[in-house]
Design a protein around this nucleic acid. Structure first.
Lengths: 188, 188
DNA sequence: ATGCTACATAGCTATCATGGCTACGGTCAA
DNA sequence: TTGACCGTAGCCATGATAGCTATGTAGCAT
């Protein structure tokens, strides 16, 4: 091997994720990432095709982490589907508060996520939805829940809840009502 | 009055909105807007502080148009709150399909919308929510509905519904379930 | 009333700074 | 010697500013 490497793809993506949260997407410049990694900007292009690809990798890594946490949430919860749904919602919301920029990146439209990661992150939701609404309506129920959750958190992050009222309470209200709405007598 | 004006703030914002939809936010450059208006880029700075302010004005104008359409939807519908809710959802979704980039701009986090426009666009939803859920839960109900709607449409625009199933049907299912979930025996 | 001057403002050219990206050469371990 | 790694130099696009030119109106002098 010639001259030892001073960085790695993982290091670059990690630096990018940190920078995304601390400075925002538009400050996520190749120079800033390179500086954080201890290298000059052009050197990044040995590992990453361009800025868009780097952003895609960051989104991908973030989505995988979310998927892992969602799996964990379902495993921790009791077997009651309503409780599991609440857990899923809470974990996703906590994640969004912890990494708001990353969350926006995932659910925004600027990045096209690959099918596999999408399926992986949907799996736990689909399972709970099936338990709650029955197999037949599982996909619709999962979509209704995911849409609500995503919308709620997006609006919260965007500061769109400025008409008063308690946001925590609105969240609890929302989960409970969605669970009720989606539950079938047969399922949950 | 000195040299006749070749443009106006309205003209600039309109050109910006058109460009946003046809070319996307990142192609919305000051030069592109100026060219469309028939002027050079620096001249725009006589009317607009900078690109961010222009984007804010575009978001604002788009939100006002959405608010107007939502009002219209409620007026057209019968007096049944469920029907009104369905109308609101449909109008918003149609709007999002017609102006996807504008819709993302509104519900994304890159622009801070002013309180007044926010309230104006929320008003019809709040009214229907009150009719459906009762005054006490109106705000919570409106937030649950808005969150679901926003999330559903955002995901649709982002192409996140790739796990099969009929999206139209999922939408109908969603509105119906949200209406059920939010309706109180007293209210709707 | 007519003609000239002063001024206010729209828009332009020129220019700078920043950031993405490429080409190419130096350096260092094997 | 060789080959991968990384840096310097540099190109291009874009946001933004400075200062100039052009234009037309208001107002004054005749």
């Amino acid at each position: 091997m010639p001259t030892p490497e001073r960085t790695s793809l993982d290091g670059i993506v990690s630096a990018g994720r940190a920078l995304l949260e601390s400075d925002g997407l538009d400050r996520l410049t190749m120079q800033a990432v390179a500086a954080r990694v201890g290298v000059r900007a052009p050197s990044l292009y040995k590992r990453v095709r361009n800025r868009d690809e780097l952003i895609g990798l960051i989104a991908h890594a973030t989505l995988r982490e979310l998927a892992t946490r969602l799996e964990g949430a379902v495993n921790e919860a009791a077997d009651d589907p309503r409780t599991e749904l609440r857990q899923l919602a809470g974990v996703a919301r906590d994640f969004a508060h912890e990494r708001p920029a990353g969350f926006r990146l995932i659910f925004g439209a600027e990045v096209r996520l690959d099918e596999a990661s999408l399926a992986a992150s949907s799996a736990p939701v689909l399972r709970v939805a099936a338990a709650l609404a029955g197999e037949r309506d599982a996909l619709h129920a999962a979509r209704t829940f995911t849409a609500w959750l995503n919308g709620f958190v997006s609006m919260e992050l965007a500061g769109a809840f400025r008409l008063g009222g308690d946001v925590e309470h609105a969240f609890e209200y929302g989960v409970a009502r969605i669970a009720d709405a989606v539950a079938s007598p047969a399922g949950g």
